Structure formats: structure tokens, C-alpha cells
Amino acid sequence: MPIVFQDLLQGVEVTGALGLKQTVTGLHYDSRQIQPGNIFVCIKGYRTDGHLFIQDALSRGAVGLVVEKDINIKPQVSIARVKNSRQAMALMAANFFDHPSRKLTLIGVTGTNGKTTTTHLIDAVLAGKGEHTGIIGTIYNKIGDQRLPVERTTPESLDLQSILAQMNTSKVRTVSMEASSHALYLQRTAACEFDVGVFTNLTQDHLDFHRDMNEYLAAKMLLFEGLGKERVKKRPCYAVVNNDDRAAERIKKCTNVPVITCGINEQADVRAEDVRLNSDGSSFTVSYKEGNFSVCT
């Protein structure tokens, strides 16, 4: 769907611009995927720099660029210089697809372990109630009964917004999404309006990407710090936190929305008691302020 470049940049901090009245057909961060009329978003990565592929994008029909540095291009094309092209792409993608997360109930699950299990359990419960659901995660993405292949736990922001838009078209009501620390740190989820943030746990991992455990936790906290900010949806949002984990207190303190705690060993709003594991599955009692009930798996 054609859109004017400057409308695509709504909400983006632009530090310099040229030719923003240009009508464009879409955007991409991979020069090899550029189609005629597209905007090429130049992202500086850890292995290469998108600015090095500007000429390739132009040769494929790009009519505009989003850059972080001054460039000298002939012939002149529409250009928007921004402070952070990753964040810009997330906002532009949301604008292009008309903010699909605002039309869904979006549940983000983060933590070192248990993201995949938790998203699938949430999905199973809601699907069991008859809801049309979706999953974005490590094993596959799911739109209703359709399963789609994945390249990474949380897609790039452009791909993520596209998937959410497809879910809207397919009448999906609720989406359970794995939110990895990489995705949160790299702002792939920046333009997503979450209704629930779930924290499972934090153990040593991904220190090849994060400098230390504090930075790793800080990336996880981004999901909870963003809950409720610049919210368009009228319904409330909240956080669900595993109170047994040592990082729980920092997670709870960083968010401004109501927190529901869960756990086994620590005092929590929702507790699993009388937990029993055997070769056939598990059983436990869910205890909360309004009563309790038994669960068998």
C-alpha cells in the first residue's frame, strides 16, 4: 500500500531530511529484498553496516533512505537521517502496517528458560476457551492453525509487524510472543503495545552478546519498563513475575503497571502447592486469594 515517506516517519526522531513528500511502496533493511519504490533502512550491525549496501538498494529501485550518518549520493534520493535506525525501522514498520499490535491482545514472555513452554501453555489455555490465537517464538510462528518457519526467536521489527498484521487479517485475537533479550535490546519490539509482560527467570546465558549479567537483566527489564507507556488501548495491562527468581524484585520495581507474582517457594499471589512429578506427568494445586483448584498434566 503506497504511503508518503514523511507519514511513514511519524514518531521517529529525524535529525535531517530531504524529499520526504516522496510516495513509497514499503521498506526493508536487506538491500537484496528491496522492491521498486521501497525505502532502504541502513542498519549498522555487528558483522556489517547497511550503509555499505546503499548503491545495491538503489540499483534495485529504492527511492529513499534512512541513515545514521551523512552520505553523498548521486542522483539525489529522498533521505531521512535519524539517531537510531533500528528504532526508526520499528516505528516505521508499525506505521506502515497500521499498528497491528493495538488491535490484538499481546502477551510478551521473557526469561532465560521457559519462554517457549510458557507461550505454548498460554496459547493452549486460550485456544481451549475457543479463542483464535497466535504464537511468535523459537520453534515456529503460528497464526490460528497455520505454522510458519522462523529464523530467530523474535523477528526483526519489520518482519514482526508484518506477522502481527497477518494475524489481524486472520482474525487472531490473542498473541503469545517470546521476547528475547537480543530482540528487546535491539528494539525489535519497540513499536509493540503489550498487554501483559511475563518474566520466567534469569540464569547465566548470552554473555557472548551482553557484557555481563547486569546488562542481560537490563535488556529483560525493557519489556516491563515499557508496559503502559504511550498506551492507546483502553484496557489495563500488567506484569506477571516469577517471585522465586532472584531478579524478581528488580523486575517488579522497574514497571509502573500492576504486578501479579507467581511461584512455589516464595510468597506469591498465585502459588503452586503439593507439586508432584511422576512418569505420567505432574499434578499440583493452584492457590490464590479467591480459592484453589487442582491441575494435572
Results as ranks from 00 to 15, higher is better:
P36I: 06
T119F: 00
S283D: 06
A247R: 05
D269P: 09
S85E: 00
S294N: 14
T297E: 02
Q161F: 01
N84H: 08
T15V: 15
T116Q: 02
I251V: 15
N243P: 05
D123W: 02
P258W: 10
D205N: 11
L148Y: 11
L104V: 06
M89F: 13
S287W: 06
A191C: 10
H28R: 06
V14I: 13
I122D: 00
V24T: 09
T200Y: 04
T261I: 11
T189R: 03
E131L: 14
Q22A: 12
G26P: 07
N38C: 08
A94H: 02
R32W: 03
P75R: 08
I54A: 10
E266W: 02
R60I: 05
L8G: 03
V295C: 14
L126I: 08
S59Y: 00
D159S: 13
E230C: 12
H120A: 02
R102E: 09
V4K: 15
G128D: 02
R102K: 14
K142V: 11
D208R: 11
G114V: 11
N256M: 12
S31K: 05
L18W: 14
V14C: 08
P155M: 05
E13M: 11
S101T: 05
E178H: 08
Y238S: 13
P75H: 08
K220T: 04
S101K: 05
P155T: 06
P100F: 01
V196E: 01
A62E: 02
F96S: 05
T261W: 05
I43W: 00
D280K: 15
C254Q: 09
G226L: 01
R86N: 08
L223P: 06
A179R: 01
F53G: 10
G64W: 06
V270C: 10
N84V: 05
L8S: 03
K142E: 12
T23H: 09
E178R: 07
K220C: 04
R81A: 04
A62I: 08
I39A: 00
V109A: 00
K289W: 07
Q76S: 15
K21Q: 15
K253S: 13
V232E: 10
A190R: 09
F224S: 03
F96H: 06
K69W: 01
S283F: 04
T138M: 12
I79P: 04
G114I: 09
T297W: 06
T203D: 02
S282G: 13
A219P: 09
N242I: 07
V286R: 10
L207I: 05
T200S: 05
K21D: 15
G64V: 11
E13L: 12
N95A: 09
D274Y: 07
N72A: 14
D70T: 14
N256H: 14
D212P: 12
K171P: 00
T118W: 01
F199H: 02
C262K: 09
K83R: 12
T261D: 06
P149S: 11
K252S: 12
D30V: 08
I122R: 01
I135M: 09
T119N: 04
R250E: 10
V109Q: 00
R147F: 07
I39Q: 01
C296K: 15
V270G: 04
D49T: 10
N141G: 09
F194G: 01
I71K: 13
T116N: 03
L277I: 15
V4C: 12
V77I: 13
T153I: 03
F53V: 08
L148S: 10
Y288H: 15
H210T: 05
A247D: 03
T117G: 09
R152W: 00
I71N: 10
G197I: 02
I139H: 12
L8Y: 02
M221L: 14
